Simulated scan of single mutants.
Amino acid sequence: MNNLEKIVEQLKQNKVVAYPTEAVFGLGCNPLSESAVQALLTLKNRPKAKGLILIAPDKELLLPYIDETQLTAEHWKIFENIGEQAITWVMPAKQSVPRYLTGQFSSIAVRLCRVPAVVELCQATGFALTSTSCNLTGKAPCRTALEVKAQFGENFPVLEANTGGKTNPSEIRDIFTQHIFRQG
């Protein structure tokens, strides 16, 4: 990853970057920067009401957003079990979580992601990342850094690394009911 330091600096400066996830590249930023999240939503032409996914390699970076009082040891066991299919879990959000992250919901979508690029970005920045598919409206999600540059321009900050090699993006499920909102 020859440009990791550059991408980390962009994240610390509250910029939007592209980085590889399990199957596709994601667009992400510091979730605690409202201006960065707004820039991401504008770039994607994504309604604020939809909310965003947060990803991190370990639950400690996600705990500031999750209302742990509503979860049992069994819920945590389910959440921490990373299988072949990447799963984004819809969990109760703390009341302090900004609406620009939760959208119209009282929940937050979170995923443990151990793709090396995500691990390195989170360790270097000290925060979870917002994650939405890296594509312009109407176009297919980018699967390589070259595809990101083709859609967003040569100067767009993209971490030059590989995805986790999965075919499908993460499944989205409710932690309490196991209801599937998006098939993976």
Rank of each mutant, 00 (worst) to 15 (best):
T130D: 03
P57C: 03
A56L: 05
T167Y: 12
F176L: 10
T72H: 06
N162G: 08
H179P: 00
S106N: 12
G103L: 12
N135Y: 10
F181Q: 03
I172D: 08
C142P: 04
R114T: 15
L159T: 12
T163G: 12
V90P: 09
E171S: 15
E147G: 09
L61I: 07
T163M: 08
T69S: 03
T72N: 09
G138F: 07
E80G: 15
K149A: 13
A150Y: 08
I55Y: 01
R173Q: 13
P141Y: 12
R46S: 04
E60N: 15
P157R: 11
E80H: 10
T88W: 06
P92H: 06
S133T: 09
F127R: 06
K149I: 15
V119E: 09
K139Q: 14
S170C: 11
A117D: 06
L54Q: 09
Q123C: 12
I78V: 14
W89Q: 09
P64V: 00
I172A: 11
F79C: 10
G164C: 07
P92Y: 01
A49Y: 03
E120F: 06
F127Y: 09
C122Y: 08
F156V: 00
L61H: 11
C134S: 11
R46K: 04
K149H: 00
V118C: 10
R99A: 06
T72Q: 09
A86S: 10
N168T: 13
I66A: 09
A128K: 01
I180C: 14
S96H: 04
E171Q: 11
V97Y: 05
K77Y: 11
M91G: 01
G138P: 10
I180E: 00
Q123H: 13
P57D: 15
F127K: 06
E68W: 01
E160M: 07
E84D: 07
I53Q: 09
Q104A: 14
G51W: 03
F152P: 03
Q151K: 01
T132I: 08
I78A: 15
E60C: 04
H179C: 02
C113K: 02
K139D: 04
C142E: 02
N135P: 00
T102Q: 00
A86K: 10
A145L: 12
E84W: 05
F105W: 11
P57V: 01
D58V: 11
L54Y: 06
E160D: 15
T69L: 00
R143I: 00
C113A: 13
R173T: 01
L121K: 03
G153T: 15
Q151A: 02
L61S: 08
I53S: 06
P64N: 07
A86I: 01
E171P: 01
C122S: 06
A109L: 07
G153Q: 03
P47C: 06
G126S: 05
G184C: 04
T137A: 11
Q85I: 15
I82L: 13
L112P: 02
A145M: 10
P141S: 14
A49T: 10
T69R: 11
E154G: 12
L61R: 12
I53T: 10
K50T: 02
K166Q: 15
H75C: 00
W89C: 05
T132E: 07
V90F: 13
S107K: 11
R99I: 03
V118P: 05
L62C: 08
G51E: 00
N155A: 13
V148R: 07
I66R: 02
T137M: 01
V90D: 00
G153E: 01
R111N: 07
A117Y: 05
L71P: 06
L129H: 04
D174Q: 02
A73I: 08
R143K: 15
F176K: 05
P47Q: 11
